[in-house]
């Protein structure tokens, strides 16, 4: 494998892990207003993601930084081309981040309600915007010399909107499975039940997304040349099957199934894009590719050394953190933590 292909994969992996991790944060944020019935249950929902959401969000920052370092024209083209969408995404992430910290700091119904709404918006909006982002990425852009020529409303095409709704439901389901796993008591039971009810919708949207991708994008042209790639959507389907709450042997298995589903889903799209990182609409290899838009070999080698050492280290210590906080959180034991949101 050449350096450019390797960096395309690293780039894809960072985005995929970001979506699979922050995805359940979004889902928990979306769910917290309706799945929790008491103020204490709300706190439980927020505190299950409390220790991890910040570390999850750094995968986005890293994906952005690595795009800048390894594929500068892609970084420039994507974020200037999606200026307003990107700005709205950042704004909603800003609100979400401070909501957790601010929400419990003042006594008062109005104060809480405001931050509860902001948390919900901090779940729905990023999920939808990331869906629009990836939908357009899979579809391709009208490009002129590497510059994206579509305005904000051009981004809201039917395929991208379908992807947006798909992402939203996938993350909601992912977050419900997370709550079933990490919360305890009736809240966990309700989350598991809601996840079961959401599952058929996820499956239906997955099928629609695959069908729409075949019809509205050139994603599957790469698959015809290399049929082995079909393993990716198959892996996604396997993860999705396993994520059905009650079908998997354990709640952990269901959550991990959903995790695999999201990773494989992102790679299903990326494999169809290769070698493009910013595809031109309707044509493979005509956009900003891993070859015509990469940094020089020297920079890629330096960055390879950095990610080879530090990304496995990050994965190791983040896994440890997930293990430390694996005991189920309930309304009874919440206050024994010593600190909570």
């Amino acid at each position: 494998m050449d350096l450019n292909t390797f960096w395309f994969l690293v780039w894809g992996l960072l985005w995929a892990v970001y979506l699979a991790l922050d995805g359940f944060d979004f889902g928990a944020c979306m769910a917290h207003n309706f799945i929790a019935r008491t103020p204490d249950e709300r706190r439980v929902v927020i505190n299950t993601i409390g220790p991890v959401w910040d570390g999850n969000e750094v995968w986005l920052v890293t994906a952005g930084g690595v795009t800048f370092a390894a594929f500068p024209p892609v970084y420039a083209s994507l974020f200037s081309g999606l200026y307003t969408a990107m700005f709205l995404l950042l704004l909603s992430l800003i609100f979400r981040g401070v909501s957790f910290e601010f929400r419990g700091k003042v006594e008062g119904e109005g104060w809480r309600r405001f931050w509860d709404l902001s948390i919900a918006a901090g779940g729905f909006l990023p999920a939808l915007l990331l869906g629009v982002f990836f939908g357009n990425l899979f579809r391709g852009f009208p490009l002129e010399g590497g510059t994206i020529m579509s305005g904000f409303f051009d981004l809201l095409n039917p395929y991208a909107l379908l992807t947006a709704v798909f992402f939203m439901i996938v993350f909601l389901h992912h977050g419900l499975l997370w709550l079933a796993l990490r919360a305890g008591g009736p809240l966990a039971e309700r989350s598991a039940a809601a996840a079961s009810r959401a599952w058929p919708l996820v499956a239906l949207l997955f099928l629609s997304f695959i069908a729409a991708s075949r019809y509205a994008t050139p994603l599957f042209s790469n698959y015809e040349a290399r049929p082995l790639l079909y393993l990716l959507p198959l892996a996604a389907a396997a993860g999705l099957a396993r994520s059905r709450a009650g079908f998997a042997a354990s709640q952990r298995g269901a959550f991990l199934g959903s995790f695999v589903f999201i990773i494989a889903l992102v790679f299903t799209g990326l494999a169809g894009m290769f070698p493009d990182l910013v595809p031109a609409i309707g044509e493979r290899g005509a956009g900003l590719t891993a070859y015509n838009s990469a940094s020089g070999a020297y920079t890629l080698k330096v960055m390879t050394a950095v990610v080879a050492v530090f990304v496995p280290a990050v994965i190791a210590y983040q896994l440890w953190v997930y293990k430390v906080f694996s005991p189920k959180l309930t309304t009874e034991n919440l206050k024994d933590l010593g600190h909570y949101y």
Binding site: G50, P51, V52, D54, G55, E57, V58, V61, T62, G64, G65, V66, T67, F68, A69, A70, P72, Y75, S295, T299, V302, M303, V306, V307, F310, V311, V314, Y317, Q318, V321, F325
Partner: peptide
């Protein structure tokens, strides 16, 4: 871009994970 990417990979991950 390299120092920004290295910042995220080596430092921002560290502080954001362990602050939790």
């Amino acid at each position: 871009g390299a120092p920004l990417a290295i910042e995220a990979t080596t430092s921002f991950f560290l502080e954001s994970t362990f602050i939790g």
